[in-house]
Write a protein that binds this DNA or RNA. Structure first.
Length: 500
RNA sequence: GGCGACGUGGCCAAGUGGCAAGGCAGGGGCCUGCAAAGCCCUUAUCCCCGGUUCGAAUCCGGGCGUCGCCUCCA
């Protein structure tokens, strides 16, 4: 079985065959750095991060390129509003973008070119287009002539005539055709500018991706990704520019992600209904955000709400429990068995592990179906809970290897989706617990860990005396500080998990 | 107006011809002093109407509804 992917150009799922065997050349449109990215932007970057991770998992050597658009009208506008330079604005939000990506657990691109560092190549492509009769100069501006490229509209499934009849495009007298778009713009006073054969100016937005992808990946590269709102005109224009300039097909597979919505409406900066990624990350850890988003297929619209994030928090915990419980059992329950597992029962459990792995891969192979893949992991989590609860480690620790294997599989498969286990917080018990221990357990030291031990001992004593009020006071005191106290057949256990 | 996508249990969401995954929430049970966690059981005429087929959530036609793009947008 090979990977299949939905190709916007073909309007169908296709077998994924790369230009060079074993290698993937992949490009995803990056942000225009005029503001912090919102959670909708983040979804797209997350989708392609997972696609990249999965292709790597499948053994491909992935070269992943994502640009930064650091010269653009929006950046200039923002700079003017704030009375500072465009360079300053771009730099601030470039740094913020990179940090937010890292915080969401998104792997850094192999290369991250900036528009302002690719000006020479931009000018070169504009010149190539002019030379080949696909672009024309008007008073220092250069426009691409859509009529000169017969394939215009093939990506988005549009027809030039239809576009023009319904056109709300502003009529610029200087353009040969209303659909022609700027490759190079004359700089107004105070705007960033670079010298060119057509005068001082700056590149048009659509040009950037064509140039940077060609520079980093060559002409017909494997995957070009972005959100579906970029299909037209951005990607359509890229196809036109690149294919007109090179005479070669631009991209093998066009992948487009669905949009994130709020109240059934697209989240966008212009609509003002957005939440910034960095703000969401304050309340919810990256694995929770990732889990929430990946439970929906990347091409489907995704309704965003804090309710869904809260649900994902619970679901994430469900995935953590078997891993945590297996680890704990391996550490402290050696030789314990609720009842012995038969060889067949153990074999069946090993089968569950294999099935989860197979299903995970089959789902991901089928157009990166993360929702289906996650279902496989949830199923393995249940099987692990059942096996551990039913049989334990085994009298002679005979179940230890399979339990360990299962927990490792859960960790590994989640890892392919970039959903990390929580970081160990060993030794980070809060100091307040000492005071509670002094109050309820007569503890006189200052070590939080010993204080917890003292509290548990006091609670056990109270329970032996059937003094439920005292026992519950201890549990309540611990829970108020973020501990969970649970009684098991093997004795009480405490887990510390401060709310994130 | 043009082009495209979607409509699956209370909510979210996989599944694109053969007994309807998974998560959240709810109900019942086991376990527990009570809990928690876990396990077991439990909730679907797959928007409507026709058609094709031995068989349709899945294919075709029509209708209704929602969303996206057509202007900057991830």
């Amino acid at each position: 079985m090979s990977v299949r992917a939905y190709n916007t150009m073909a309007r169908a799922k296709e077998d994924f065959l790369t230009r060079d065997p074993g290698k993937v050349a992949m490009y995803v449109c990056g942000p225009t750095v005029y503001n912090h990215i919102h959670i909708g932007n983040a979804r797209t970057f997350l989708s392609f991060d997972v696609i990249r991770r999965y292709l790597t998992f499948r053994g491909y050597d992935v070269r992943f390129v994502q640009n930064i658009t650091d010269v653009d009208d929006k950046i200039i506008n923002r700079a003017n509003e704030e009375g500072r330079s465009a360079t300053e604005v771009a730099h601030e939000y470039t740094v913020a973008f990179q940090k937010a990506m890292a915080d969401l657990g998104i792997l850094p691109p192999t290369v991250q070119p900036k528009a302002t560092e690719t000006i020479t190549e931009m000018i070169d492509m504009v010149q190539r287009l002019i030379d080949r009769g696909h672009a024309y100069v008007v008073e220092g501006d250069v426009y691409f002539s859509v009529r000169s490229f017969p394939g215009y509209g093939k990506l988005s499934g549009r027809d030039i005539e239809d576009l023009e009849s319904g056109a709300r495009v502003d009529v610029d007298e200087r353009k040969h055709d209303p659909l022609d778009f700027a490759l190079w713009k004359t700089a107004k006073p105070g705007e960033p500018h670079w010298p060119s054969p057509w005068g001082e100016g700056r590149p048009g937005w659509h040009l950037e991706c064509s140039v940077m992808s060609e520079r980093e990946l060559g002409v017909t590269f494997d995957i070009h990704g972005g959100a579906s709102d970029l299909v037209f005109p951005h990607h359509e224009n890229e196809v036109a520019q690149s294919e007109a300039a090179t005479g070669e097909p631009f991209v093998r597979y066009w992948l487009h992600g669905g949009l994130l919505q709020v109240n059934a409406e697209k989240m966008s900066k212009s609509l003002g209904n957005f939440m910034l990624l960095k703000d969401v990350l304050v309340e919810y850890d990256a694995p929770i955000i990732r889990l929430m988003m990946l439970q929906t297929h990347y091409r489907s619209p995704l309704e965003f709400s804090t309710e869904r994030l809260n649900e994902a928090r619970v679901a994430y915990e469900r995935l953590l429990v078997p891993v945590r419980e297996v680890k704990r059992a391996l550490e402290s329950d050696a030789g314990w068995a609720a009842r012995p597992a038969t060889t067949e029962e153990r074999k069946a459990f090993v089968g569950n592990i294999g099935n989860a792995r197979d299903k995970f891969q089959a789902e991901m192979d089928d157009d990166f179906n993360t929702a289906g893949a996650l279902a496989a992991v949830f199923e393995l989590a249940r099987a692990t809970n059942r096996f551990l609860g039913g049989f334990g480690i085994g009298e002679h620790s005979e179940n230890a290897p399979v339990l360990s294997q299962s927990a490792q599989t859960i960790i590994e498969l989640l890892g392919v989706l970039g959903i990390a286990m929580p970081e160990a917080r060993a030794g980070e018990y809060p100091k307040e617990v000492v005071k509670v221990a002094a109050e309820l357990a007569g503890y006189s030291g200052s070590d939080p860990r010993a204080a917890v031990e003292a509290l548990l001992a006091a609670r056990s004593a109270a329970r032996t005396e059937r003094n439920w009020a005292a026992a519950d006071a201890v549990r309540g005191g611990l829970e108020a500080l973020g501990f969970t106290v649970e009684d098991t057949p093997r004795g009480p256990r405490v887990t510390y998990s401060p709310e994130n």
